[in-house]
Amino acid sequence: MSDEAGSSVFLEDETHQYNHDSLRIVKDLFAGTTGGIAQVLVGQPFDTTKVRLQTSTAEDITTMKVIKDLVKHEGLKGFYKGTLTPLIGVGACVSVQFGVNEYMKRLLKTYNKTYKGIDSKILSLPQYYACGLTGGLVNSFLSSPIEHIRIRLQIQKNSGKNAEFSGPLDCIKKLLKQKQLMRGLPVMMVRAGHGLGVYFLVYEALIANQIKKKSINREDIKSWRLCLYGATAGTLLWIAVYPIDVIKSIIQSDNLKSPKYGTSLFKVGRQLYLKEGLPVFFKGLLPTMLRATPANAVTFTVFETSMRLMG
């Protein structure tokens, strides 16, 4: 074979590999988007209740009181306040989370094969954590402003002309004007980085255990197991980061012009502890745990199902 022919074959292989990788990334992102949309539709009522609890200053606040007040004053649609932003935004966020996680898994599998001589579809536990951590850090730049907007709309009790924000676009416009859209980003990076590290570590560890135990392919794992693994991963995620999430919610719901707490993770945490004690870091935990089970069960199941359908 001539050098020209060899070069031609090499270029064709390179192009094929590039197209294959690009298509895989598109599939990962699309599957993540479907999982994210499902997560929002299932979890939004729980999330609204959680945020109202976290940001309330009333001493007698309870989950049932928040729910009763929401239904009484805002109707059932009150549970879906600010849904448009997360429906679009969380779809994109979960897409990035899963997309980066899947890319990192492929990268580390190649690294293991090339430099460690380990040709396996299963990674080590620290590597699974690193994949999720990377996805969380990258995703923070997208999820932080989205959650900030959602929280501002969720805690807004007035409507019509009396409302501070008329909707998501108005909220974005006003936050940009005050240079506050990215408020809470450093705290979000801590929460999302560690949280998603735990999230994907737990899920992938359960998947890997099933593959080794049953000697089956990932595609052969039954849907009910995917639901169970997703629910478990989501629950442990929130146990790992909930106090940090409370601090983030306080920062992102604080007064824009004259903040009461500031934006530092440790400074805000210290102020909350001195004012309300340790229980403050677990306000809203019940609806969060109730949300984590169905929302994350649905997220992973829809993601895995989408991946299987696309091949």
Score class of each variant (00 low, 15 high):
residue 176 L to P: 01
residue 32 G to N: 01
residue 47 D to G: 10
residue 136 G to Y: 00
residue 237 L to G: 03
residue 52 R to K: 15
residue 206 L to E: 10
residue 172 I to Y: 06
residue 257 K to V: 10
residue 207 I to K: 07
residue 65 K to I: 06
residue 213 K to E: 11
residue 188 M to E: 08
residue 189 M to D: 04
residue 297 A to E: 03
residue 95 S to G: 14
residue 132 G to N: 03
residue 99 G to F: 00
residue 269 G to A: 14
residue 274 L to A: 13
residue 130 A to Q: 00
residue 128 Y to D: 02
residue 289 M to Y: 05
residue 272 L to Y: 07
residue 311 G to A: 13
residue 125 L to M: 12
residue 84 L to S: 09
residue 99 G to N: 01
residue 225 R to L: 13
residue 49 T to M: 12
residue 50 K to A: 14
residue 183 R to H: 04
residue 168 P to S: 12
residue 22 S to Y: 13
residue 187 V to T: 15
residue 250 I to K: 07
residue 104 M to D: 01
residue 239 I to P: 02
residue 283 K to N: 11
residue 119 D to Y: 05
residue 151 I to C: 02
residue 37 I to Q: 02
residue 28 D to R: 02
residue 189 M to C: 15
residue 168 P to L: 08
residue 223 S to P: 10
residue 39 Q to D: 05
residue 304 E to N: 12
residue 14 E to L: 13
residue 305 T to G: 02
residue 12 E to F: 07
residue 246 V to G: 00
residue 65 K to F: 06
residue 230 G to W: 01
residue 209 N to H: 13
residue 184 G to D: 02
residue 182 M to G: 01
residue 24 R to P: 00
residue 186 P to Q: 09
residue 238 W to L: 15
residue 196 L to V: 04
residue 1 M to P: 06
residue 44 Q to D: 07
residue 158 N to L: 13
residue 250 I to L: 06
residue 26 V to F: 10
residue 180 Q to P: 01
